[in-house]
């Protein structure tokens, strides 16, 4: 996309992730349909063919642009361009891990408690520990509103934990 020959060549490596995932997934997908009748294969064959063609076109274009020195393909700088500078990168990765932890514990801790913990830690992560008062206020209201709306009013079948079980007894 960078047509100005004077500017620094763009690092294309991050742009290759989606085609790589798509390629790997398609290959995996095709291995799972070897045994099924042709009608169930038909759509996937057509689309996977088109996808592979597009990826091929992308690869050819990339090689072409690299040879023209309009793009480069190198590891250095790739992470930064994908995830931001080091502090932001750390925040993103930590937040992702926190989200995974959230769904990991929600079955045992229940919706209300896990939401509270997640929002509280999330806010601290994105600001600082000094902000704990605000984080507490916000996360507490989230948990309370969430409980009242989803569980109390709508009777949604959210994972129940100690708080839900206790409130069920009380209410």
């Amino acid at each position: 996309m960078n047509n100005d020959p004077q500017s620094k060549p763009r690092n294309i490596l991050p742009d290759c992730i989606i085609p790589a995932i798509a390629f790997a997934f398609t290959v995996y997908y095709l291995t799972t349909i070897t045994e099924v009748p042709w009608i169930s294969q038909a759509s996937a064959f057509v689309v996977s063919g088109l996808l592979m063609l597009s990826i091929l076109a992308f690869a050819v274009r990339t090689v072409w642009r690299i040879r023209q020195h309009r793009e480069t393909c190198q590891l250095s700088g790739a992470f930064e361009s994908l995830l931001g500078d080091i502090p932001t990168m750390l925040k993103r990765v930590a937040l992702l891990l926190l989200s995974i932890a959230f769904i990991w514990v929600i079955d045992n801790l229940g919706f209300t408690l896990s939401t509270f913990i997640f929002v509280f830690l999330g806010i601290l992560l994105l600001s600082s520990v000094e902000n704990w008062r605000n984080a507490l206020k916000v996360s507490l209201s989230c948990a309370v509103i969430g409980y009242v709306v989803f569980i109390y009013l709508f009777n949604t079948r959210f994972p129940a934990g100690p708080i839900e079980n206790w409130l069920k007894g009380v209410l």
């Binding site: 742009d15 989606i18 085609p19 995932i21 798509a22 997934f25 398609t26 995996y28 997908y29 799972t32 349909i33 045994e35 099924v36 009748p37 009608i39 169930s40 759509s43 996937a44 689309v47 996977s48 088109l50 996808l51 597009s54 990826i55 076109a57 992308f58 274009r61």
Partner: peptide, 27 residues
Amino acid sequence: IKGLIAGFFGLMIGYIGADVVYEAPRG
């Protein structure tokens, strides 16, 4: 090219699961 890769990738993701006729689980 990027648009088509994204679109076809989405379609392939959409094909995950059993088909309506043979119920063969795929991908």
